[in-house]
Amino acid sequence: MARLEFFVVSESVSVDQQTNRLSLFNIIEQVASTKFPSVLPAAVAVSMWMAEAGDDVRDFQCTLRFTLPNGNRHEFASNFKFRARRHRVIQRVEGFPLNEPGVLRFEVLLNGEYVASHEVDISRIDTKDQETTPDKKPTPET
């Protein structure tokens, strides 16, 4: 059975067309919003799978499951077959409805079995912070 190398959720990813190298940008750990309900525009879940003996003839289903702070669950499945030693599943999800502060939990399942998770804290920004934010640049001390 394929083995998970890593699972992580970031804001965006890039795969170099020439070298096939993967870059992850801004791994998401916390999301703060001034008001709820809000929408997280996008997140990309990347899971890297390593083939083991006999995996080349198998079909796999990688499911991304996420649980919103209000308990609602969504699942998205991607099917793949190993054509090489490693296989990346890059699942971009757009428009996360954030109804309240709490924990946004991402889980990855392989053929229906839970393998790993990534949690994101959803918090509220105190709007007083925004009001006291100075518009002008701080003057250098003399």
């Binding site: 709820f36 296989h87 971009r92 999800v93």
Partner: peptide
């Protein structure tokens, strides 16, 4: 290494000319 990319949509994204101001995120 081979890749399987996929895009999914959960909720409609807020329109840029929406009447109410979108929350700061």
């Amino acid at each position: 290494t081979s890749n399987t990319p996929a895009v999914f949509k959960v909720a409609p994204l807020p329109q840029p000319n929406a009447p109410s101001q979108p929350p700061y995120l």
